[in-house]
Computed example of a mutant assay.
Amino acid sequence: MAEYTIEEKDSFTVLGIGVELKSDYTDYAGINQEKADFWQTISEDGTLDALKAIATNDYIFTVNEAVNNKMMHYAGVQTEESIPEATRLIQFPKGEYVVVKGEGKTSQELSNTLTGIAFGQVLPAEKNVAYVGGPNTTVEMGQRNGLLFGEMWIPVVRK
């Protein structure tokens, strides 16, 4: 079983630039390709750098959220500022979060690995809490030994 913790977090807000994912929610290959294309685009066109430039810390957030019955995927940062490219202020509630730590060679690998562990192993096995929706995020926190490291934060409620 994957290592994880359940932690209390204060509410926080992430300024995000997003894209609607058009693949069926069961089409993991399609979803992952759409996410990869999105990250490549914002990395190459300077949008990600613009977000990083206004961030209050070094964390890069990869957020998944259902909005108006659409699957949305965002790149985001914590900031007091805004930029014209921003598409949403994403509110994360105060409360308990399942936190899964991990690492990967790329941002995409880190996010996919943590998402797979959190939703494929941790949440199905966890008996005391449940994910009932709302935004969830992978937080890229830095680099060590040539790998990116970070955490997946999923808001949960007690069963």
Score class of each variant (00 low, 15 high):
Met1His: 15
Met1Arg: 13
Met1Trp: 11
Glu7Arg: 14
Glu7Gly: 11
Asp10Asn: 13
Phe12Glu: 06
Phe12His: 12
Phe12Tyr: 13
Val14Phe: 03
Val14Met: 08
Leu15Pro: 07
Gly16Glu: 04
Gly16Val: 04
Gly18Gln: 06
Val19Asn: 10
Leu21Val: 15
Lys22Arg: 14
Ser23Pro: 03
Asp24Tyr: 12
Asp24Lys: 15
Asp24Thr: 12
Tyr25Gly: 02
Tyr28Asp: 10
Ile31Leu: 10
Lys35Ser: 07
Asp37Tyr: 05
Phe38Ala: 10
Trp39Asn: 14
Gln40Lys: 15
Thr41Phe: 02
Ile42Gln: 05
Glu44Arg: 14
Asp45Tyr: 05
Asp45Phe: 10
Gly46Ile: 11
Thr47Cys: 08
Thr47Trp: 09
Thr47Ile: 10
Ala50Thr: 13
Ala53Thr: 04
Asp58Lys: 08
Ile60Gln: 00
Thr62Phe: 13
Thr62Asn: 06
Asn64Asp: 10
Glu65Ala: 09
Glu65His: 14
Ala66Gln: 05
Val67Pro: 03
Val67Trp: 01
Lys70Glu: 09
Met71Lys: 08
His73Leu: 06
His73Lys: 06
Tyr74Trp: 05
Tyr74Gly: 06
Tyr74Asn: 06
Ala75Leu: 00
Ala75Thr: 03
Val77Arg: 01
Gln78Met: 12
Gln78Trp: 00
Gln78His: 00
Thr79Arg: 02
Thr79Ser: 14
Glu80Met: 06
Glu80Cys: 03
Glu81Ala: 14
Ser82Phe: 12
Ser82Tyr: 12
Ile83Gly: 07
Ile83Trp: 04
Pro84Trp: 12
Glu85Lys: 14
Glu85Asp: 15
Ala86Val: 05
Thr87Arg: 11
Arg88Phe: 05
Ile90Arg: 10
Pro93Tyr: 10
Pro93Trp: 07
Glu96Thr: 13
Val98Phe: 08
Val99Pro: 07
Lys101Glu: 05
Gly102Val: 00
Glu103Asn: 12
Ser107Arg: 01
Gln108Lys: 01
Glu109Pro: 03
Leu110Pro: 01
Leu110Met: 02
Ser111Tyr: 00
Thr113His: 05
Thr113Phe: 05
Thr115Ala: 12
Ile117Trp: 04
Ile117Gly: 08
Ile117His: 04
Gln121Thr: 07
Leu123Met: 09
Ala125Pro: 02
Lys127Met: 03
Val129Gly: 04
Ala130Val: 15
Tyr131Ala: 09
Gly134Cys: 12
Pro135Val: 06
Pro135Tyr: 04
Arg144Ile: 03
Gly146Asn: 10
Gly146Arg: 07
Leu147Asp: 05
Leu147Tyr: 07
Leu147Lys: 15
Leu147Val: 08
Gly150Arg: 03
Met152Thr: 07
Pro155Asp: 12
Pro155Trp: 09
Val156Pro: 13
Arg158Leu: 14
Arg158Val: 13
Arg158His: 15
Lys159Glu: 13
